[in-house]
Design a protein around this nucleic acid. Structure first.
Lengths: 348, 348
DNA sequence: TTTTAGCACTCGAAAAAGGTGAGTGCTAAT
DNA sequence: ATTAGCACTCACCTTTTTCGAGTGCTAAAA
């Protein structure tokens, strides 16, 4: 399927059909094609060509007396070989740049903004993903002393990410004790994966702590949770309502499946975490998605890398008749902007 | 409407109709009532009573030859005077308690868990809200030094809330400089509302800082943002998919409106922020909601107070034929649990 | 050999027609 | 005051009809 040989005319016809169907969502008839385009042949000729395209598996008919719609293969061919590069408007570029410029630094913040932007620009549902990382390691603990009974714990992960958690305790903890506690934490619990935080370590630490020992348990629990949260990945979704704009989600069953998918973040996370093929732009059409609920949808996303490793992704989910070229252009632009922002943030 | 005089029989009939309609979502006929209940009269009698209830504005007929459904007023009467106290199952209580026990301390975390719990228990869409507070004041800055080019800023708000933000800078900042910078921040920028952070303060601080002056601008921006974020309120929604379980949201238009409502957090925030009537449990039925999109929905929420001030709220949104007694019971129980958790956290 | 005009045919979608029954209001008897 | 009885209403469901966009095929034209 890499490079199916198609006559120039067939390519034009396929392109016209795909684009019309993307636009109007309805089967495309031979007459519409004949009139509309720079094709100089009659509808009868187009009918013949369409029949051939159908036998090649690029088009299909919903029923005998209807026009044609593209198959998944048809879309695939379109995306790979036919789609024109969409040229973003100055307004679009401007607005994206402006928004990104404010959000340098925190990955979560950047992804969040990206998601919002994408949703409002494309009129599709947008997702922002921080995939599960597999082995969170905390390289440092910092803390801010709030009162005798409370302090903020700051977890600094190897990835550069930072999480915080406010701890409360019935114990009376002086600033000095607090400092000592933090020193112990940094000495005994950094550089470890969740599995490496063994009971013996904890017992040993408790022994050292003396009367502050009861403080350790909730802190260790917090550490665990922070690691798991960090490992577990994050998912944000914007513009769910856009689904309703497309008749392919008008059936309650379909819609329900999608909403369930969005609510159970596991699935989408898996989808992105599973594969790092090296390609930064992923276009998954229909059943290519390997999730039942998405077999009538397209999922396009772009990964965000840091030091070669995938640390995030953002993209859109919508009907298979998605405006691929526009979406791809927007994702690419956004991606560039984000890379720039990070490069500045890192060493600039 | 406070205490409409109704005969005992009318009350029973109204209650039966409301409960049947809550359960099945369909108009209730006289026959069903007559058979079902402990009423000892015939369907004809009930028809007469129903006609009267209708003329009082408590019931209505979707069309001439259908049964009756409660009006908003009917639901209101039911909620105020008729609803039985729902008794939670041991399982429900157990699970709520267990979940809450893990989430002591961070308001956001508690609200989040509450929302999830509510959604899964009630089969309605759940919301958790931290309303806009109006005047965020930071009482203290803490910081954790990460590297010469990065540190974590911790904002401690007067409300006890804590926010963090990771700062990057191209400057080379030594630990000592960092400590000095933090000292200045605490000296010059605590106890202020956003408006009180004036340019003159900033200029003065820059003067003191000397070569570290360029650091101030991004930090002040971050402070601004943190305050606004804190002021702006937070909204979390779970179980959107549950809407689809109720035919009142089967029309795309309805659904769309709701999804739009959920995505534009402003509206819901306003709804809760606007009023602090002193009542902790709010039941808004239909048009009582003062948001067009919600005129066919009920919104029940419970506020969370701290020191007498409303700092959060959680509740459910669903069709007007909501299972009021069950929802209210669950919200109340949850609320108790949360109060307990906070009391422990504060002084325990 | 390729293209095209013409035509009979197909079949989903929308509109129209028909049937069903739950539920009503009213009247008259209890 | 209650209830049995009955004519009537009207949303909902099913069936029928109509309609037309689109097709494939054939035969003529290029």
């Amino acid at each position: 399927m890499e490079h199916l040989e198609l006559s120039e005319r067939k390519r034009l016809i396929l392109q016209a059909i795909v684009e019309s169907h993307i636009r109007y969502g309805e089967p495309v008839g031979s007459k519409a094609i004949a009139e509309n385009q720079q094709l100089t042949c009659s509808s009868a000729t187009i009918r013949n060509e369409m029949a051939e395209l159908e036998s090649m598996g690029l088009l299909e008919q919903p029923h005998t007396s209807a026009g044609r719609i593209p198959t998944e293969l048809g879309y695939r061919y379109y995306v790979d070989s036919l789609a024109q590069k969409y040229r973003m408007t100055a307004m679009e570029i401007e607005q994206i740049n402006r928004t990104l410029r404010q959000k340098i630094g925190e990955l979560d913040g950047v992804l969040e903004s990206a998601s919002r932007l994408i949703s409002s620009f494309t009129n599709y549902t947008a997702v922002a993903i921080r995939p599960r990382s597999g082995s969170a390691v905390i390289t440092r603990f910092e803390s801010a002393y709030l009162s005798e009974h409370a302090f903020v714990l700051v977890f600094v992960f190897a990835s550069g990410e930072v999480k915080t958690k406010t701890m409360h305790t019935p114990l009376f903890v002086s600033p000095e004790e607090h400092a000592g506690f933090m020193q112990l934490l940094n000495a005994g619990f950094t550089g470890l994966t969740a599995e490496e935080i063994t009971l013996s370590r904890i017992v040993e630490a408790e022994r050292v702590l003396g009367n502050l020992a009861p403080l350790l348990h909730p802190v260790v629990t917090a550490i665990y949770e922070a690691m798991n949260e960090h490992d577990g990945g994050e998912l944000r979704i914007d513009g769910v309502g856009h689904l309703l704009e497309y008749p392919e989600y008008s059936e309650p069953a379909q819609l329900r499946e999608m909403l369930a998918l969005f609510e159970e973040k596991e699935n989408l996370l898996k989808l992105v975490s599973a594969e790092d093929t090296g390609k930064d732009l992923q276009v998954h059409i229909g059943s290519e998605n390997a999730i039942g609920a998405m077999s009538n949808s397209a999922f396009i996303y772009r990964t965000v890398r840091r030091g070669g490793k995938v640390v995030g992704a953002f993209g859109v989910i919508g009907p298979t008749r998605m405006d691929y070229s526009r979406v791809i252009a927007i994702l690419n632009h956004l991606s560039e902007g984000i890379s720039d922002a990070f490069d500045e943030g890192e060493d600039g």
